[in-house]
Simulated assay, not measured.
Amino acid sequence: MARSSGPHAHPQTAAHASEHAPETRGPRNVITHDQISRRAYEIFLARGGFHGNHEQDWAQAERELKLGRR
């Protein structure tokens, strides 16, 4: 039996389904966790993939996205 994600779906099932739904665009000033994560990974790769600076990479990604830079 297939799980439903409609209005009568079990709350846990509906929440789980939305976690895996394609990302939709919201207002321009809203930055998602996924966007920051992807940009932080790009920064990590640009630094040569050396570990140990994940907090700085994350902060830089967040700053860039908030300023509309990339």
Rank of each mutant, 00 (worst) to 15 (best):
M1K: 07
M1S: 15
A2I: 14
A2G: 13
S4Y: 10
S4L: 06
S5W: 13
G6S: 06
P7Q: 10
H8V: 10
H8I: 02
A9C: 08
H10M: 10
Q12G: 06
Q12C: 07
T13R: 02
A14F: 03
A14D: 10
A15S: 13
A15Q: 14
A15F: 12
A17G: 10
A17N: 14
A17E: 13
S18Y: 15
S18A: 14
E19V: 11
E19H: 03
E19R: 14
H20I: 15
A21Q: 02
P22A: 15
E23H: 03
E23M: 02
E23R: 10
T24N: 08
T24A: 15
T24R: 15
G26T: 15
G26S: 09
P27Y: 09
P27T: 13
P27E: 04
R28C: 11
R28V: 14
N29C: 13
N29R: 02
N29M: 01
N29Q: 02
N29L: 03
N29H: 02
V30W: 12
V30F: 02
I31K: 14
T32I: 06
T32S: 01
H33L: 01
H33K: 04
H33S: 07
H33M: 00
H33E: 05
D34L: 09
D34I: 00
Q35Y: 06
Q35A: 08
Q35V: 00
Q35W: 09
I36W: 01
I36Q: 03
I36H: 01
R38Q: 04
R38M: 11
R39C: 05
R39D: 06
A40E: 00
A40V: 00
A40M: 04
A40N: 12
Y41T: 09
Y41Q: 12
Y41N: 08
E42C: 13
E42K: 06
I43E: 12
I43R: 00
F44K: 03
L45Q: 14
L45A: 04
A46K: 05
R47S: 05
R47F: 05
R47Q: 07
G48P: 08
G48K: 08
G49W: 00
G49F: 02
F50P: 01
F50H: 09
G52W: 00
N53A: 15
N53F: 12
H54C: 07
H54P: 01
H54R: 12
E55N: 14
Q56V: 06
Q56H: 08
D57F: 01
D57S: 00
D57M: 11
W58T: 12
W58S: 11
W58Y: 12
W58I: 02
W58V: 07
Q60R: 11
Q60S: 10
Q60A: 09
E62C: 09
E62N: 07
E64V: 14
E64D: 15
E64G: 14
L65M: 13
K66L: 07
L67V: 05
G68K: 04
R69G: 01
R69S: 03
R69W: 14
R70Y: 12
R70S: 13
R70P: 04
R70Q: 12
R70H: 04
R70K: 11
